[in-house]
Computed example of a mutant assay.
Amino acid sequence: MTWRGPTHRTVDGERIDGVWCHVWRRHWRGEYSVDDLFVYADGAVLCEKLTDLAGLERMLDSGLIAVTDPTAPGPEEQPRTWRSRSSGPLTPRNFLLEVADRVEELAGRPTTVQRCWEAISRFGEERSEANRELLREAYLAIPAHLRIFVLGDMDLQDRPLRMLLTDLGEPVGGDGPPATTEMHEWALEYFRKGDEGVARSRERRSALHADDPAGAGRPPVVLRDVVYPQGWPERLGDFVLRNDYPARIRFAGDVHPSVLHGYWALSTAEDTDRVRVRNAPTAREAHELGSRAARRNDWPAVRLAVMAGLLRAKFTQHPDLAQILLATGDAAISYTGGWESPYWTDAFDDRGRNWMGRLLELTRAELLTDRLSWPTAE
């Protein structure tokens, strides 16, 4: 079964993550059509109606939901050999177990595959019959059609596990050669080498990622579009990072009352429009005038560079504002609001590119770079 995601639903204001797949749903006339089945971290299942795992089991048992096309001919039975096996048919029972595994994964709990790997490690540390029995139970708990994928080995599939779990003298996989002590030792060596490879990979990743932050980063800084009818407050806050905050900037040979004045003035093709925008009483009026004026031909290619230059000018020419930007540390900056285009803002849908937030983060890094002291060559 192919699962897709992410998706979610909201319950009492809380986001519940989920995934979905296609199934066949029977209609009142007995005909089937493809439908979406959603599975969520809290165990809820949605296909036409909201239910749970027990409800899904009843729908599968009654034939209301089918996991394969009921009108298609059944797959030809593949020969099962101990050296190469197909994944086996997807049955309603196995699908139900797979759905239960998805719930565990979404909820951040160990899946049957993860529990099997834990049992493999436990048996490698202590080769007792009790641990081998626990490993057998963990392996058999994996949905049958997914067991050949448990080791992630396309060549050997799950053969090392089957060798390890087969009693001495019994045929491996039911049709293979009798299990021997040498087979068991080979399988244990297979897992030991795998553990060593994982350890080497983790050590190398740890070295290559040595500059990763040790702890959690700061929560995002959200710059909301605010209005102060009585004028800007005396105490400066994050609102000064927005483009409409009145901070005079010398840039590109002119003085602009705010970043928004400068951006829209420099976007215009005519000198008269540029002067009108620059002299607008407020940033909002500058935006309105500039957006209605004729645009310079190269504006799509240069607008990011112009905005980056205006921000650099604003925060280098106003050290008090630079200090507020630097105080955000390494936090992501989300620039919101309904006046600017989604190109600039962190809009609620996938149109939002948040270029303003990204450029503010870049400006912050540049300000910090200018304040660093560097070693000099002797």
Rank of each mutant, 00 (worst) to 15 (best):
T328G: 05
P79H: 13
T328D: 11
P143D: 12
E185Y: 07
L236Y: 09
R303V: 03
V11S: 08
P281Y: 07
L368W: 15
A293N: 05
D271N: 15
V302T: 10
P219Q: 12
S334P: 04
P281E: 09
A187V: 07
A130L: 08
E48C: 08
N297V: 03
R9V: 04
Y335W: 05
M1D: 07
E288F: 04
T336Y: 05
A313Q: 10
R351V: 13
A332R: 01
L260D: 00
L321T: 05
A44V: 09
Y263A: 01
W24V: 03
E270I: 04
G197Y: 09
A214W: 11
R115L: 14
P6R: 06
E133G: 11
P110F: 13
L367I: 10
R29E: 03
F123E: 01
G217Y: 11
A247K: 04
L359K: 07
D35R: 14
G18D: 08
A216P: 13
D350M: 13
Q230L: 08
A210R: 02
V172Y: 09
D175F: 12
L360Y: 05
P246H: 03
A210N: 06
V113S: 03
A347C: 09
D35S: 15
T10W: 10
R147C: 00
W355D: 00
L165C: 04
E126W: 12
P160A: 04
E118F: 02
V19G: 01
F191C: 05
D211T: 12
Q157A: 01
L289K: 05
E340M: 01
Y40H: 10
A252N: 09
S62I: 14
R295K: 15
A54L: 15
A214P: 05
E189I: 12
E288W: 06
E76M: 08
N297W: 00
Y190Q: 09
P171N: 13
A44T: 12
P110G: 08
T51R: 04
S87F: 05
D69G: 10
Y139N: 05
D273V: 10
Q114K: 08
R312M: 12
D158G: 01
R93F: 03
S341W: 11
E77T: 11
Y343N: 06
L188P: 01
L50S: 13
A210F: 06
D153T: 05
A305K: 15
R4C: 03
D298N: 10
M1T: 11
S121Q: 13
D167K: 11
D36C: 09
M356E: 08
I142V: 10
L161W: 00
P92T: 05
